[in-house]
Amino acid sequence: MDVKYYLRERFFPHMWCAGCGHGIVLNSLVRAVDLLGLKKRDIVMVSGIGCSSRISGYVDFHSLHTLHGRALAFATGVKLSKPSLNVIVPMGDGDALAIGGNHFIHAARRNINITALVMNNRTYGMTGGQFSPLSGVGTKATTAPYSNIDREFDTVELATGAGATFVARTTVYHVKQLQSLIKKAISHDGFSVLEVLSQCPTYFGRKNRKGSAVDMLNSFKDGTVPVGSKKKQENPELIERGIFVEKQLPEYCDAYAELVERATAK
């Protein structure tokens, strides 16, 4: 396939640091779109603010680069007003779950057919390495110089609890799984959440002595296991990858169409 067919070369070079994991998500995303055979004009990328959010500008789809934390709110307007569009929302961990946390749980609750990609590098990269709600206790950040006391969210548990009907997790090390899960998330009829662990060697890595980008990628390999693996029972520190939730429930735009039928039948 021709990756460049899906990219806006006018927009390059991209603004991500050397060693950043976000480019791997971009690559997997366009490959997934290609495999699904989606038309470029049928896709809208809606993003907020942050390093991850810049992904929407690089792809040759309709793109809406919005406000910090509000991407899912804009996306809800796009999707409900024109349900035929495929709406994909790439977000960072701070964007999705700190400032955007309310919109995240409510989009999940509605089960509106939007694909949320949470690119989790455990830091605010664009503003220079502050701690996020996914950094975790004991991590270092420019705003946690004495080490972080804020407990972290588990994105998968949060999305599941809020009612998302497709919930999955992988890392940028596992590119084949990443591509496959993006495909499944886009194809899913309902609100889908895919958390992608991505490395930020510039800030999170440096502050927390995680080594080079390659070292951080290797830690994704060594620190994660497939869902339901026995290794996880033996070592709770390991992070599970794969699909956690996949179920069919009434989708919001479909439910709205039924509501219109009831309203017009009167």
């Binding site: 919005t66 406000l67 509000r70 709110a73 804009f74 796009v78 409900l80 309310n102 919109h103 309203a263």
Partner: peptide, 30 residues
């Protein structure tokens, strides 16, 4: 809804304003 139009109650005023902007971009009066 009786006129086939879209009405949504959002989770707050921030998201309400954002949602109408998104819907305007698909060609709607919002």
């Amino acid at each position: 809804p009786a006129a086939g139009k879209k009405f949504i109650q959002m989770e707050d005023e921030i998201s309400s304003m954002c949602a109408i902007i998104g819907a305007s971009l698909t060609g709607n009066k919002v």
